[in-house]
Amino acid sequence: MDILRKSIEILTLLAVQVLVLNHIHLGLYALPLLTPLIVVWASYDLSPVKLTVTAFLVGLIQDMFAGTPGIGASALTFAAFMQRPLLRLLMGKNLTDSLEPSPDSMGALKFVFYAVMIFTLHHAVFFFLEDFRMIDAWGTLLSALSSLLFSCGLALLVDYVRRKKL
């Protein structure tokens, strides 16, 4: 049941991203990216190999629809790889194997910080690979920051709605 629920969540996120969000560009810079949520929601007891492979596949599908082969996959794979060290850093001695990241299990502030960090790492890799040569460094930074702001806001909203439904 849990696997089914998680699969539906992932597919829903993916569908929203490729069918709706990929077509939104706020102020020509901001691109909302919700796919890092699958990394944010992953529980600590999920095997890091499974999480990395899942993130890679989700990123790859996102790339297929966006026409940016490898960029999304690389960014999401990196974010998935950094999830466990980040949780260990934030939770310290309070970390349990069965931890499901949420405001209730981590504390609101820690959860927000954790989510923002995951999104930051993802966006940093994504926009660096997209620009690649840093010719317009300020433009890239503006894109990344505005996208980050928008994505984090949207992600926290989606997470709130998800928890309410659960």
């Binding site: 990395t52 890679f56 790859l60 082969p69 490898g70 996959a73 690389s74 690979l129």
Partner: peptide, 10 residues
Amino acid sequence: LEGVSLTLVV
């Protein structure tokens, strides 16, 4: 997987 992704990027 990172290697595969970066190859796809290039």
